[in-house]
């Protein structure tokens, strides 16, 4: 079942260190494609840590790996390290500021049951 959340992309220590190691390293790719969620939220979408999740909004559609947030995100708020995946959910509109809305994005999330399919 798809559920609506607010997505906060941001910097992490591991994102910074693996960025220096290289954007094509497994560490960096894993860091920027892992979505951290409150345990209750994981349960709401019928997923456990390590599951593949489809995340989308009107601007983009990505597949990421779910991760268990360790007390940073309240229910309803999900976090991902800033990078290629999170940027695909930004729109081109900047509202006259030059800055696309890059945090506090409305997204829908559902568990991917098998490649190319969703839980629906």
């Amino acid at each position: 079942m798809a559920v609506e959340f607010i997505l906060i992309p941001g910097r992490t220590s591991r994102q910074g260190t693996t960025l220096n190691e290289g954007k094509y390293t497994d560490g960096y790719k894993e860091e920027v494609s892992t979505l951290l969620m409150h345990p209750d939220d994981l349960e709401r979408i019928g997923a456990t840590a390590g599951d593949q999740l489809r995340v989308w909004n009107e601007h983009g559609d990505i597949t990421v790996t779910s991760g268990l947030d360790k007390g940073e995100c309240p229910p309803g708020l999900v976090f991902i390290s800033y990078g290629d995946c999170s940027s695909r959910l930004m729109g081109g509109e900047t509202h006259g500021s030059g800055m696309p809305t890059s945090k506090g994005l409305d997204v829908w999330i559902e568990r991917v049951t098998s490649p190319g399919e969703t839980a629906e």
């Binding site: 990078g83 290629d84 940027s87 930004m90 081109g92 509109e93 900047t94 696309p100």
Partner: peptide, 24 residues
């Protein structure tokens, strides 16, 4: 971001940045 998203710029000089992986 606007110049590119609106399709206006016809060339770019990019110094030490990676917009291809972090722009809309």
């Amino acid at each position: 971001s606007d110049l590119l998203a609106r399709g206006e710029a016809d060339a770019a000089l990019i110094i030490a940045s990676d917009p291809m992986s972090n722009f809309s």
